[in-house]
């Protein structure tokens, strides 16, 4: 798989480390969230067959986190964004 890095251009997926569903960006507030909320955040996954937004870390490159939109049935990558931009668009400060 080739991941088209928004800054560095096309890079081999082997340069990246995979974390999982991009919903992991939305971590609950540790001071207020219940144990059940954190359990769901940490352990439960949608695990879709088809389009999947997911976090990849460019460990062998510029060490940026990316949100890659990829089809889990065909491995086709349709969109690559900086995770920073995605988080900020959702109202996060960083």
């Amino acid at each position: 798989m080739i991941i088209n890095h928004p800054i560095l251009g096309p890079r081999d997926a082997a340069e990246f480390v995979y974390l999982g569903d991009a919903a992991l960006i939305n971590r609950p507030d540790g001071m207020t969230a219940s144990v059940e909320t954190f359990h769901d955040y940490l352990y439960l996954r949608d695990n879709p067959a088809g389009e999947h937004r997911e976090l990849w870390y460019h460990e062998q490159g510029d060490r940026s986190w990316l949100v890659v939109t990829r089809n889990t049935v065909t491995h086709e990558i349709t969109k690559v964004e900086l995770a920073r931009d995605v988080a900020r668009a959702q109202g996060r400060s960083k």
């Binding site: 798989m1 995979y18 695990n47 067959a49 889990t72 049935v73 491995h75």
Partner: peptide, 10 residues
Amino acid sequence: GYNSYAQRGN
């Protein structure tokens, strides 16, 4: 190491 339903790897 990544989510897949493709029954083939890389």
